[in-house]
Amino acid sequence: MLSLDFSEIRNAFEFVSSGSRDENNAYVCKKTGVIYWTSTTLDLEEEVPKDLETSLDYVEVPHKNELKLGQSLALTFIDQTLPDEYNFVASLFRKRGAYRRFKDMLQYQGLLEKWYAFEEQASDDALLAWCEENEIKLIDKEQ
């Protein structure tokens, strides 16, 4: 079983999730544990294997939306902390700039730090499950 530092997986996940789907990608080599980074918008100047996307030797690090850590997570948070605002927040996500307005509302309510902690825990939990599914043993994060 492949062993990696959780921080390496987390960094790759944050890179992938920092853009829209397929804008930034990261792939873990199942044999060596090396993480390869690619981007359609950034010049990373890193040589990567040509078969990253087709070979079974690599597993693609998921985007946050693939792990249901985008809009649905925000709505789950609102449902738990401000259930009376659920419909309002849901309407925010029908327009561009939703996350900015969502975070502005949380700042106004004094809940922004609570949101960040909730989001981080949900991300960690989802990444731990993803690592387990892909037979990646983590050396610095309790499972």
Score class of each variant (00 low, 15 high):
43 D>R: 11
43 D>S: 11
43 D>N: 13
44 L>I: 04
44 L>G: 02
45 E>R: 13
45 E>P: 00
46 E>T: 10
47 E>M: 09
49 P>C: 05
49 P>R: 06
50 K>H: 12
50 K>V: 13
51 D>S: 06
51 D>E: 10
51 D>N: 14
51 D>G: 09
51 D>R: 05
52 L>A: 07
52 L>S: 04
53 E>D: 11
54 T>G: 07
54 T>M: 07
54 T>I: 08
54 T>K: 11
55 S>Q: 06
55 S>A: 09
55 S>R: 05
56 L>E: 15
56 L>F: 12
56 L>P: 09
56 L>M: 12
58 Y>W: 06
58 Y>P: 02
59 V>H: 06
59 V>R: 03
60 E>Y: 03
61 V>G: 00
61 V>C: 02
62 P>Q: 04
62 P>H: 03
62 P>K: 01
63 H>G: 01
64 K>I: 05
64 K>V: 04
65 N>I: 11
65 N>E: 14
65 N>W: 03
65 N>S: 15
66 E>I: 00
66 E>M: 08
66 E>H: 10
66 E>V: 01
68 K>N: 14
68 K>R: 14
69 L>N: 03
69 L>I: 00
70 G>S: 06
70 G>C: 06
70 G>V: 00
73 L>R: 03
73 L>Y: 03
74 A>R: 09
75 L>Q: 04
76 T>I: 12
76 T>E: 15
76 T>G: 07
77 F>H: 02
78 I>H: 02
78 I>F: 02
78 I>R: 00
78 I>E: 02
79 D>Y: 13
79 D>N: 14
80 Q>V: 05
80 Q>E: 15
82 L>K: 12
83 P>V: 03
83 P>S: 06
83 P>G: 06
83 P>L: 06
85 E>L: 14
86 Y>V: 08
86 Y>L: 14
87 N>F: 13
88 F>A: 11
89 V>E: 00
89 V>L: 05
89 V>Q: 01
89 V>F: 10
90 A>G: 03
90 A>T: 12
91 S>Y: 08
91 S>L: 05
93 F>M: 04
93 F>K: 01
94 R>K: 15
94 R>M: 13
95 K>G: 06
96 R>N: 14
96 R>F: 10
97 G>R: 05
98 A>N: 05
98 A>Y: 02
98 A>T: 04
98 A>S: 14
99 Y>L: 12
99 Y>K: 07
100 R>P: 01
100 R>S: 13
100 R>A: 14
101 R>Y: 12
101 R>L: 10
102 F>K: 00
103 K>T: 11
103 K>S: 13
104 D>W: 00
104 D>E: 15
104 D>S: 13
104 D>R: 10
104 D>H: 09
104 D>Q: 13
105 M>E: 07
105 M>H: 11
106 L>W: 06
106 L>Y: 08
106 L>D: 02
107 Q>K: 15
